[in-house]
Amino acid sequence: MQFFFEVLIGGLLAGVMYSLVALGFVLIYKASGVFNFAQGAMVFLAALTFVGLQEKFGLPLWGAFPLTLGVMVLLGIGIERVVLRPLVNQPQITLFMATIGLAFFLEGVAQLVWGTEVRRLDLGLQDEPIESVMERFNLLISKFDLVAALVAGLLVAVLAVFFNKTRIGRALRAVADDHQAALAVGIPLKQIWAIVWSVAGFVALVAGLLWGARNGVQFALTFVALKALPVLILGGFESVLGAIVGGLIIGASEKLAEVYLPSLMSDFLLKHYDISINLAGIEGWFAYMLALVFLLVRPEGLFGERHIDRV
């Protein structure tokens, strides 16, 4: 039982790391109704810029953070000017395609400016077990994962206040519903988009720092975005809370599935059909399969808004 809880807790904490990336997607989706394919590239760019600035100018963490945030804000404003503004009132698929182009552009630019070498990112926090928990309960809980969970919780709280209690937050929701109608009632669409892309840049920076500190800053950071997809399908594309809950479900279920399902299925096949096969490695697709099943039952996700179109 102790092992089960270890896998479960580890999975929940891993899920929080997925949620951090998923939050960036939610922000953009809430503001424009567009799935931002470039979110993974933004995570990579933010982390690479952070370590690049540290390396080039010998900056401490607190020095590199605001500078990188500045870069991400400028990027957000630039994306609004160059990519989004010309596409106002275009179909959402057009905006989506634009973000695909943006993803490749950002990946290329990041490597052009800072190089392709793998870099270590030291946040002063080792990925080690909490000794007191280990000694008392023989349970492995990582200090690093726990801090990441706290950061994610804080981000959710801040974003929830931002969306629900501020004028900009309410305007964001109006823009997501209908660009033209939002413009008609005087909502400054351009500013709203610039702000939301900048906030998404901030979220990408936080996610990039945590993932980068864990695995090193390298191109593979762009792949963490793929883990956010099932999280979004489960939690709902428009819900900040959904990103967290979806992350927890995906993280826990994929870890439990990877640890327990292959041996159960292998034993079953051997016992009933005399087939010996190693089914380990289902973690790579299990989350997507779960999301697919969920999509069939509840297409809008756990916390997503149900869309009803009048015909």
């Binding site: 891993a14 963490v224 870890k255 380990a280 490695g281 973690e283």
Partner: peptide, 15 residues
Amino acid sequence: IPVPHPGNEQQSQWL
């Protein structure tokens, strides 16, 4: 024990 590509998450394998 397999690790799915690209291998940036290995919690279950190491547990």
